[in-house]
Design a protein around this nucleic acid. Structure first.
Length: 841
RNA sequence: GCGGAUGUGGUGAAAUGGUAGACACGCAAGGUUUAGGACCUUGUGAUGAGAGUCGUGUGGGUUCAAGUCCCACCAUCCGCACCA
């Protein structure tokens, strides 16, 4: 018996086609709406090769889909491709091969890998966002949004490479320089398309309340903070008469801390503020300062960390509540034109940035809020001082009071603002969905005749910038309205636009409208959405926003896309660097007998702590080679075993060996059991296994329900260990029941081996068509419980007592059990029935 | 800078405020001889001869009882709107 070895290659080949032919039609879903279950995994960008992050994501989804199918649901489990995007365009520039060709090749090879892994996807629902069937429909949505005023054009910043004359993505800016040219990157304002997400800010915030308990708390918090609702005041400052900007009389400022107005010592305006622009026309020093400030990237991180620079304009404003006091106006690099009004007031005593700025430019620092230790800056709440009529009030009262005062005196008003900015959807790139707008010299912006196809006659070799801008036959067209010469908009859509509604297109990927309302109404919301936490804000916020818009436009009765969200952790691996400070692949590292590590050139290698697997750091393991040498089941088992899905997972080759060995152990024990049953080798009538199995079944199911897959697996292994221990003592009926139950609960984790064993056991139906086992409620009641006895909170002994023994008897038994204690010295005794006794002496 | 998380044996991790370390990996000793990607048994937080004592990043606090709750801190990781 023991020489039977599990042949995973043969078993995988036997069942793979069965797994890949899964599909549930819309007719079936419509016929029984209560039985639909939509499990969705974030669709991949088709890079060409699956990585371990994909494997983890899709394995979790596959496990849940298989369980739900056994529980009788019609499971919608689709897969597709987020196929537009920058990498394909960059590859094209190097290789000269069109993004459409390389992308489709990549999709073919990744699809082969997914199918080889046996994930039960409904491939009839497949969607690829770069296909005409998809982006033509997306253009219809865009024009709908356009008609409703949800998309509009405005001046927005891009990273500009002044040498290559091209727009750069943040990723292409490395330490403030363009990745190809090495030129210092500048900010440049371009007229670009935005989507009015801020008008939905309140509803997006409201919607989070319904997600509590379904979405991870950290994701909800991150979205709340991202939206960043704040109550504050819009204050209008009167400019002291001057010759510098004689035509501008006021500066409007938004502040969330109007309570600190008595401590105000400067006004800071953006380099793009009207005043800055006016000044720079006549003053070369101002324009030089502004130029200096423009040499900065656009990310929030860079802006926040940059040295705070200011330039005094020579202008003063009148303090609105302190008579005859004048406050200087500075141009500053930290004020953003697209947030608030492009101007802020500075109160150095109670804001860290203002404090630094005031110290640097020798501005007065007046404390207006009492802190405990008088250390400045103090940014917390407190009691107002040095603030005239606000003195003695709390921060909250003072805010209220000062806004009332400003409103009464017509100097300002209450205003709610959001940190959330409108969504910039324009990209100056080729490989995306063309924005279907024509710019006509007479009519202005005009919706294009649909569809607008992306041209493919482009020479990608040595391409710089956006080829659509240079494509004369495509770019120049006639105005759909008046027929005169016009030009197409050459921007394409942000790829987040595609990923904001793909899960609706899966539901009917052939529909001649973007969305099939009937099937969408029944199939939404997605019951379980699984993907990386890196999407916590952007993608997941945009998708929620789209759903609200689509609901408002009548596309769906649903306004919430995803019910339950699981954010899985990253797959990490140790880093290796050799003596030349080059990264080394883990596969190329060898351990010598004395423990030193060398690479395949014999150079010494140093090990560094685990980080997210990434190509550039070479700390990757290729799923393909793991699958070939260990088999799919072993890979699945390993990746789910030891780490909860939402935590980062550290790759560990010996634990993978362990998973592989466990499959062989299953196979060995399976054959022993077969042997015993088939030879009717009945020499025992012990039915303990029946009860044990039911106890484990309940626990395993609980953990599957909470998607604690690592715990389900641990418990399944415990059950398996019990079965193995009891092979020779258990009755055949109990043994068969126990092992069949084990197969059923383990099938979602390792489907191939379980299919095979189930069939060999003589079952005509496949395991995938079996019903999820129900545990026997009556048998799992325990008769006795173990009670811990503590003295002063420290464990001294455990005793066995019948379940639900009364408090008095428990107490008495406990005191008797602890012989070293003088009963007279007991001060207090705490009895928690069925659990613990704590004796305090 | 802002926002979010994480921290428990040699390692991945368990633990409705109630017996810390389930289940694994690794390691050690023994068995087996089949040389295999072995398998089986036993042991494995630290310390101590032992009863025991100590032990969940650090320092406080609440409680009969704290890995779990509260406060302060430290370290590490992730995101920051044009990577997807």
């Amino acid at each position: 018996m023991s020489d039977i070895i599990y042949n995973f290659r043969a078993v995988e080949n036997k069942w793979i086609n069965n797994f890949n032919s899964y599909s549930v039609s819309n007719d079936i879903i419509l016929s029984n709406p209560n039985k639909k279950y939509y499990v969705l995994e974030m669709l991949p960008y088709p890079s060409g090769k699956l990585h371990m992050g994909h494997i983890r994501n899709y394995t979790i989804g596959d496990v849940i889909a298989r369980i739900k199918r056994m529980q009788g649901y019609n499971v919608i489990h689709p897969m597709g491709w987020d196929a537009f995007g920058m990498p394909a365009e960059n590859a094209a520039i190097q290789s000269g091969i069109a993004p459409s060709i390389s992308t489709n090749n990549n999709i073919t090879s990744m699809k082969n890998q997914l199918q080889r892994l046996g994930y039960m996807y409904d491939w009839k629902r497949e969607v690829s966002t770069c296909n005409k069937e998809y982006y033509f429909e997306e253009q219809k949505l865009f024009l709908e949004f356009y008609k409703r005023g949800l998309v509009y054009r405005k001046q927005s910043y891009v990273n500009w490479d002044p040498v290559d004359n091209t727009v750069l993505a943040n990723e292409q800016v490395i330490n403030g320089r363009g990745w190809r040219s090495g030129a210092v990157v500048e900010k440049k304002l371009l007229n670009q398309w935005s989507m009015n997400i801020t008008s939905y800010a309140d509803r997006l915030l409201e919607g989070l309340k319904d997600l509590k308990g379904y979405w991870p708390d950290n994701v909800i918090t991150m979205q709340e903070n991202w939206i960043g609702k704040s109550e504050g005041a819009l204050i209008n400052f009167e400019i002291v008469e001057n010759n510098i900007v004689p035509n501008i009389n006021n500066i409007e400022v938004y502040s969330t801390r109007p309570d600190t107005i008595f401590g105000m010592s400067f006004i800071a305006i953006s380099i793009d503020h009207e005043i800055s622009k006016t000044l720079s026309k006549n003053d070369t020093k101002v324009s030089a300062f502004i130029e200096k400030c423009r040499k900065l990237g656009t990310t929030e991180e860079v802006l926040e960390k940059a040295e705070k620079l200011g330039y005094f304009t020579g202008i003063y404003i009148k303090h609105p509540v302190i008579k005859d006091k004048q406050i200087p106006v500075y141009i500053a690099n930290f004020v953003l034109i697209d947030y608030g009004t492009g101007a802020v007031f500075g109160c150095p005593a109670h804001d860290e940035r203002d404090y630094d700025f005031a110290t640097k430019y020798n501005l007065p620092i007046t404390t207006v809020i009492q802190s405990d230790n008088n250390e400045l800056p103090y940014t917390g709440d407190g009691i107002l001082i040095n603030s005239n009529f606000l003195n003695g009030k709390t921060t909250k009262e003072a805010k209220f009071c000062i806004i009332d005062y400003l409103e009464t005196n017509e100097r300002g008003q209450r205003q709610t603002k959001y940190r959330l900015r409108d969504w910039l959807i324009s990209r100056q790139r080729y490989w995306g969905c063309p924005i279907p707008i024509v710019h006509c010299p007479k009519c202005g912006e005009v919706p294009a005749n649909l569809p607008v196809e992306l041209p493919d006659d482009i020479d990608f070799k040595n391409l710089i910038g956006n080829p659509l801008e240079k494509h004369t036959t495509w770019k120049y067209t006639k105005c759909p309205k008046c027929g005169c010469d016009a030009i197409r908009d050459t921007d394409t859509l942000d790829t987040f636009f595609e990923s904001s509604w793909y899960f609706l297109r899966y539901l009917d990927n052939q529909c001649n409208d973007p969305i099939n309302k009937e099937i969408t109404d029944i199939s939404l919301p997605v019951d379980l959405y699984i993907g990386g936490v890196e999407h916590a804000v952007l993608h997941l916020l945009y998708a929620r926003f789209f759903m609200l818009v689509l609901h408002d436009l009548g596309y769906s009765k649903h306004s919430m896309p995803f019910k339950k969200l699981l954010t899985q952790g990253m797959v990490c691996h140790k880093l290796y660097k050799n003596s030349d400070n080059e990264y080394v692949f883990p596969d190329d590292v060898e351990k010598l007998e004395d423990g030193t590590l060398i690479d395949n050139n014999g150079k010494k290698v140093k090990e560094y702590p685990s980080e997210k697997m990434s190509k550039s750091k070479k700390n990757i393991v290729n799923p393909q080679s793991i699958m070939e040498s260990y088999g799919v089941d072993a890979l699945r088992l390993f990746i789910l075993s030891d780490t909860p899905p939402e935590k980062d997972l550290d790759w560990n080759t010996s634990a993978l060996d362990g998973s592989w060995r466990f499959l062989n152990r299953i196979w060995k024990v399976f054959n022993q059991i077969l042997d015993k049953i088939n030879n009717n080798n009945q020499n025992s009538i012990n039915n303990d296994l029946y009860k044990i199995t039911n106890i484990y079944l309940q626990k395993i199911e609980e953990n599957y329900n909470s998607i604690s897959l690592n715990k389900s697996i641990a418990l399944s292994r415990e059950l398996f260990n019990k079965i193995e221990d009891n092979i020779n003592t258990s009755s055949n009926t109990s043994l068969k029941f126990a092992f069949e139950t084990f197969i059923k609960v383990f099938y979602p984790i390792t489907p191939f081996i379980c299919h095979e064993m189930w069939q060999i056991l003589g079952n005509k139906e496949y395991i995938s068509n079996e019903k999820w086992p129900e545990f026997d409620k009556n048998i799992i009641q325990e008769e006795t419980v173990t009670i811990a006895i503590q003295v002063n909170g420290k464990l001294r002994k455990t005793i066995e007592l019948p379940k639900d023994t009364s408090k008095d008897i428990t107490e008495k038994t406990a005191i008797e059990a602890i012989t070293s204690i003088d009963a007279n010295k007991i001060k207090k005794i705490i009895v928690v029935p069925n659990r613990i006794v704590n004796i305090v002496v």
